[in-house]
Design a protein around this nucleic acid. Structure first.
Length: 846
DNA sequence: GGCAACCTGATTTTT
DNA sequence: TCAGGTTGCC
């Protein structure tokens, strides 16, 4: 890390930066700070239609504002209107606004909405996530930190790989260290802004565990630095460090951003909190003078004492929706806001514009069980709406079938698929759901989960790009060294790494010296060829002379050109195409899809660099790839669901051990956080809410019995209409239930009494009496997997009678679709109308 | 160095 | 259940 303070010359780029708007330079126009601005348009369209609290939140002016926004209370509306209001009243230039959101999708939406309110004058605002904003700052100021401005961003998988190697080399696994445990601990420390040196100062050197951890932490830090790489947590931490170590750099941003707005404030961690504090600090008079001398614009921003006052801060949040404590989020950031920022104004938004009163009453009832919270009750003027629907399945598949049946019923009633979502606690729960969705031919989409960019072949292709953008990145180089196979094995890899270490050169440079390693000619040739390929690709990115003169990227190859050249010349694509492994066909298609994505990127971001592309990819969030336009049902975790809303919401897997998750039981505050998670899920629903669980669930190949989630009992009886309550599900079967569960303790017994919703309320057990008996149990699991089944070209047409293993007999009314996607519309005698994917449905023609 | 067969151990949520 | 690691053979 460089100790030299940054020069103001370098800082000038901040002003001349092409993506800084014209408005930025006009900052020396007459002051339009809070004191000066007139509110000539206070009853403008920007506050019309807002309730009194929302209006107050839009119009309040002062150093600090906390908007406590209950779920569905219109906080995005308030935030966007507040930003628009600041700009329209000429109290701020767009460039003086920094708005932080949780996901890129939320940022994009906020930008769009502000733009819709203001038109063109909205450009130049920074609306982004914490991570994106920090990357932007860090790339600009990389030099101060001794980093390359093309630094790589390591995701958790990358971090894990590095730690795995370190742990192996240090033999730390014998002491019980795993990559995951070390990663969690390092992340936690970084979120607290504790770097290696700070940790070393307080470490107990008598504790061998701690000594070993310190060694791991130190080596990890060293390697990232050598590779010019930062992990997710560094992005925030290093920015805070940058501001603290280089006050003049900090001053540039403090001066620039006059209004900071932070969404989802309850989920900020200590590092993010510190970043906000740094950005809202006043700029001291001495620095103001110095900035002024260097031509950095300060006029109009100083107060009577010659200081530039701290930026005004607006935070929006809801402590009841704090669900990221496991990631270091500190609820105190919001609960102690008023103490942190004395004189802060607090506005409470309780009126809900999203859900029916029944849904809100359930949410209120559940969350009121968390003690130690400010009482807050959501209400709506829109009426009770329908009852909540409850269902207890015998297995996860039963539960999934219920979900799909209800989805189909909603669809028939005119609700679009895209207006429905299914939530669950853990990603593993998608399996059973997906099987039933596929079988029933209901279009769905899993949001998040195993992401495109996490696929091995995509990471391989990306590693080529990274190796070109950041030649110091050893991790990327080692990943592609023998991918595709070039005969460079682990022994050779280690030899190169050691050579680099001994000669204090980078891995990439060591590759250039392959001839000195005493390797065979074939291996040496392969290494040199790879190095050549990477060099060539790097050359493609250098702008032509004309471009250089104009200070543009003109003449430089596009990202897609470079990627295509890399995957073709390296043999990555051809190897996949020629492979006899059938899965490689899909992998080749994925790589081609990546090339297509870079083409889109090039088209949508003319002039953007390779590093821009890599940054964008590194920072995509699960929710970002939500495509509103697709007509599919969305499946996602409860965490991903935060901030979204749907006409109909299905909360599945409401069982002890799953929600609350067993892992949370031992954590302080765990069960309360799980309750908030449930609360978040409930409040996503506008009109219809479905709560479901399964009596037994397969885990690790074993079937285990489940108890209903404790949170279900916190919802008042009258609000839920149980199609099949937990009590009903057990009472069905003395012997049967027991056999089903495999293990003794029945559920009704564990529950105690038979009363209330847990008791029997007969209805709708038909379906189960047909198919559910102890003997059929094992068969059921196999049948449902469907993977082995292939009806191929079973010819069906309207009028045919068929038998389905679950639904019994029925008559085909219509056949739609082509080839493998052929769908039979069937009217079952007892189970009603269903749509089935012919190829895999468990059906036979009669 | 590559590959197939076996074994084991893990499973929360994510920018 | 399954992905990832290890072992042993070519």
């Amino acid at each position: 890390m460089s100790d030299a303070p940054p020069t103001l010359e370098g800082d000038m780029t901040l002003i001349l930066d092409p993506d800084d708007p014209a408005g930025w330079r006009e900052a020396d126009a007459p002051a339009r700070t809070a004191a000066g601005g007139g509110h000539e348009s206070s009853d403008s369209h920007l506050v019309a239609g807002l309730n009194p609290q929302q209006k107050e939140a839009v119009e309040y002016r002062g150093p600090a504002l906390l908007i406590v926004a209950g779920a569905g209370s219109g906080k995005t509306r308030v935030l966007t209107h507040r930003i628009a209001h600041l700009i329209e009243t000429r109290e701020a230039w767009p460039s003086q606004i920094l708005a932080i959101t949780f996901t890129n999708k939320a940022a994009a939406e906020m930008r769009e909405r502000v733009q819709a309110l203001l038109g063109d004058s909205a450009s130049g605002m920074w609306i982004s996530t914490f991570h994106s904003a920090c990357v932007r700052i860090l790339r600009r100021e990389a030099e101060s930190l001794g980093l390359s401005s093309t630094f790589t961003i390591y995701d958790s998988a990358d971090t894990r790989t590095v730690l795995k190697r370190i742990i192996k080399e240090l033999d730390a696994d014998t002491m019980g260290f795993t990559p995951a445990s070390a990663q969690a601990k390092i992340s936690k420390l970084k979120n607290e802004l504790t770097d290696v040196e700070a940790y070393a100062r307080n470490a107990n050197t008598n504790d061998p565990q701690e000594v070993m951890f310190l060694a791991i932490f130190r080596e990890y830090t060293r390697r990232l630095r050598a590779a010019s790489a930062l992990d997710f947590d560094d992005l925030i931490g290093e920015t805070v460090y940058l501001f603290r170590a280089f006050p003049k750099v900090a001053a540039l941003y403090q001066r620039r951003f006059r209004h900071l707005l932070v969404d989802e404030y309850q989920d900020t961690n200590h590092a993010q909190y510190s970043l906000i504090r740094e950005l809202t600090l006043p700029v001291a008079r001495e620095i103001v003078d110095e900035l002024d001398e260097h031509g950095v614009l300060v006029r109009g921003l100083t107060d009577a004492s010659g200081q530039i006052p701290g930026a005004s801060l607006t935070v929006v949040g809801d402590s009841d929706q704090s669900i990221y404590a496991f990631r270091g989020a500190d609820i105190r950031n919001i609960s102690e806001f008023e103490r942190d920022f004395p004189g802060a104004k607090v506005v409470l938004l309780e009126q809900n514009y999203r859900s029916t009163q029944n849904i809100l009453s359930a949410a209120n009832a559940v969350i009121s069980n968390n003690f130690d919270r400010k009482d807050k009750k959501l209400w709506t003027a829109d009426g009770d709406g329908e009852q909540i629907t409850g269902y207890t399945g015998y297995t996860a598949h039963d539960e999934a079938q219920f979900v799909v049946d209800e989805i189909e019923a909603l669809r028939r009633a005119g609700v679009d698929y895209r207006e429905m979502a299914v939530f669950y606690r853990t990603n593993a729960q998608t399996r059973a759901l997906e099987e039933i969705f596929v079988r029933s031919a209901v279009p769905y989409r899993v949001v998040g989960g195993t992401k495109f960019y996490e696929r091995a072949e995509i990471k391989d292709a990306m590693a080529y790009l990274i190796a070109v953008a950041n030649p110091l990145d050893e991790l990327a180089l080692r990943r592609i060294l023998n991918t595709p196979k070039r005969g460079i094995g682990p022994a050779t890899e280690t030899a190169i790494a050691q050579f680099a270490e001994q000669n204090d050169i980078s891995f990439r440079q060591a590759m250039r010296s392959a001839g000195e390693l005493g390797l065979g000619p074939k291996v040496t040739g392969a290494i040199t060829a790879l190095a050549d390929l990477l060099d060539e690709a790097a050359l493609m990115l250098v702008p032509s002379q004309a471009g250089l003169d104009a200070g543009t990227n003109e003449g430089a190859a596009k990202v897609s050109d470079v990627l295509l050249a890399l995957v073709e010349k390296s043999g990555l694509l051809t190897t996949l195409r020629n492979s006899r492994d059938p899965q490689d066909e899909t992998r080749a298609e994925n790589v081609e899809e990546l090339v297509a994505q870079t083409r889109d990127f090039d088209r949508e971001n003319p002039g953007a660099s390779l590093v821009d592309f890599l940054t964008q990819v590194s920072l995509v969030a699960a929710a970002d790839d939500l495509d509103d336009a697709s007509g599919t049902v969305s499946l996602m975790t409860l965490h991903t669901a935060k901030g979204l809303e749907y006409h109909a919401v299905f909360l599945t897997g409401l069982e002890e051990g799953l929600l609350p998750h067993q892992m949370s039981a031992s954590e302080p505050g765990g069960p309360a956080e799980e309750r908030r998670l449930f609360y978040v899920g409930i409040t996503r629903a506008r009109k219809r809410l479905y709560l479901s669980l399964a009596m037994s669930r397969a885990q690790f190949g074993e079937v285990s019995v489940a108890l209903p989630s404790r949170y279900l009992q916190e919802i008042p009886d009258g609000l839920i209409d149980w199609k099949q309550s937990p009590g009903m599900a057990t009472s069905r079967g003395g012997t049967q239930g027991r056999a089903l569960n495999g293990r003794g303790a029945g559920y009704g017994g564990a529950r105690g009494s038979d009363g209330g919703v847990w008791g029997t309320r007969g209805r709708d057990l038909e379906r189960f009496s047909v198919t559910k008996n102890a003997g059929a149990k094992t068969e059921w699991a196999n049948r449902v997997t469907g993977a082995v089944r292939d009806n191929g070209d079973l010819a069906l047409e309207a009028g045919d009678r068929i038998r389905h293993t679950d639904f019994g007999e029925g008559r085909v009314t219509q056949v739609t679709g082509e080839g493998t996607k052929k769908i039979a519309h069937v009217n079952f005698d007892t189970a009603g109308a269903k749509k089935l994917l012919i190829k895999i449905a468990p059906i036979e023609k009669l």
